[in-house]
Design a protein around this nucleic acid. Structure first.
Lengths: 219, 219
DNA sequence: GTATGCATTTCGTCA
DNA sequence: TGACGAAGTGCATAC
C-alpha cells in the first residue's frame, strides 16, 4: 500500500463527471491497484476513488487510473508532502453477527413469538417470484407468510404483498395472511401494511436471542 | 490526519458485532475523530470504521473509539510499523454532474423524445405521496406521468404505480398513463411495468444532452 | 429533527 | 456472469 499526502486536483469521468479543486489530500494506492482519495473529514467514504480491477499510469504530475469500463480518475499532483510504501500481506476476513439472516434463524426457532400456537412450515419457502422468509401456520392451522427485515420500509410491504397475492392463489395454502416483522418499522410502511391487513411485529433482537437460548437450554 | 501502519486486531460492538484477527493494516485517524481501518485490498470500504462524531482514547496498545450511540471500536495494536501525522486543512467541496436530477432536467427540456407531440406540464408534480418526476401531455392532450431513474428496478415501477393510482383519481387529469424512463431497465422491472401497461423508455444520457444542446443552439 | 430517496452506492449470494 | 437484496449502508434534501 502506497500512502501519498499531496496537493492535488482530481477529476472523475465515468458514470458521472466530478471535479475536486486543488487541496492537500491523502492518496491511497492499494496493492490491487485501487485508488482512494481521502480528505481529513467526512467519515468512511473517499472523496473520489476507483475500484479494482483498474490500472494506474503516472507521467510527471498527472496520474491516471482507468478501469475496464473506460471510467477514468485523473489526479493532477502539484506537490508531494509525503510518500511511503508498505507491505501489509493478505487480510484474514471478518466475522459478523446480528444481521437479517440471523433474525430469520432466531424467528424460525421461535415462531410462537409471532403468535400463540404458531408453528413453522418452512424457512425460505420458494415461490415463482422468490422465497418467502418464513411460512407458518397459526393455532387454527391457517397459513401465515412472514417477511423479515432489519428495517421495515415500504418496499418490504410491497414485496410481502406480492408474495401474499401469489400464495393466495394456491388452494393448498389459501387463505394466506401476512406478518411484516422488523427490528424497526417506519410509520409509512406500517400504515401501508395495516391498510392491506398485514400485521406488523417489531422484533427485539436481544430478547429473541434470549428466548431461543432459553429453549435450547431446556433440552 | 494520522496514518498508522500496525499489526492489530479489531472488534466492533454496536449495531452488530464483528471481529478482525491480528494482521497488518492501515489505521487512519481523521481530524474530525473518525477512524478507518483499511486492508491492502478491497477498494472503497474500510474493514471497520467509526464515523464522526466519536472519541478516540488510547491506553497502551488498546485503542477505543466510542460514539454517542454507545457503539465501540476496539483496536488492539500489537506492533506499530509506521506512524505519521499530517495537516491537510479543510477541503473544498466537489462538483457533480450526470445524476438523476440532470436526466430530469434534460428530459423536461426535450419531452418529445418520449413520444411525438409530447409536451411538459410540470417537473416535480406534487401529489399527496410525493412528487412525480415529470407530468406531460401526449399529442392528444392526455396525461402521462413519467418516473425517471438512472437504473430502473422493481421498486421504481411500484413507486410509479402508486402515483398513477393517485393521479388517476383526479378528474382533471384522468386517465393517466405511465412511462418508466431509465438509463438501464432491469428485466424484472420491465416485465412488471409492461404487465401494468406502463411503457418503458431507455434513456441515452449523451444523446439526450446532444438533443437539448442542439435545440438551445436553434434559438 | 424526522422521513424519504439517491448512490460512481458497495457488497454479498444465488441461479 | 447477471440479477437481486441487504447495508454498522452514508448522504442530501424536503417536510
Amino acid at each position: 500500500m502506497r500512502l501519498v499526502i499531496a496537493k492535488c486536483s482530481v477529476d472523475y469521468i465515468g458514470r458521472l463527471t466530478a471535479h475536486l479543486p486543488p487541496a492537500i489530500r491523502l492518496i491511497m494506492v492499494k496493492s490491487d491497484g485501487s485508488v482512494l482519495v481521502h480528505s481529513d473529514t467526512g467519515g468512511y467514504k473517499p472523496l473520489m476513488w476507483m475500484t479494482p480491477p483498474c490500472r494506474l499510469s503516472q507521467t510527471d504530475g498527472l496520474w491516471s487510473v482507468v478501469n475496464k469500463g473506460g471510467e477514468e480518475l485523473q489526479i493532477t499532483v502539484e506537490e508531494i508532502l509525503h510518500d511511503t510504501d508498505h507491505t501489509l500481506g493478505i487480510d484474514p476476513g471478518l466475522v459478523k453477527d446480528g444481521v437479517e439472516a440471523h433474525l430469520q434463524v432466531l424467528l424460525a426457532a421461535a415462531p410462537h413469538t409471532l403468535g400463540e400456537g404458531y408453528t413453522l412450515v418452512r424457512r425460505e419457502y420458494m415461490t415463482a417470484i422468490g422465497p418467502v422468509d418464513l411460512l407458518c401456520k397459526d393455532a387454527e392451522g391457517a397459513s401465515v407468510a412472514v417477511e423479515i427485515k432489519r428495517r421495515g420500509e415500504i418496499d418490504g410491504v410491497e414485496q410481502l404483498t406480492r408474495y401474499l397475492e401469489l400464495l393466495g392463489r394456491d388452494p393448498l395454502l389459501a387463505p394466506v395472511r401476512g406478518i411484516f416483522a422488523a427490528q424497526e418499522i417506519k410509520p409509512q410502511a406500517r400504515v401501508l401494511a395495516e391498510d392491506r391487513g398485514i400485521r406488523c411485529v417489531v422484533l427485539d433482537y436481544n430478547a429473541l436471542r434470549g428466548v431461543v437460548k432459553d429453549e435450547l437450554t431446556l433440552f
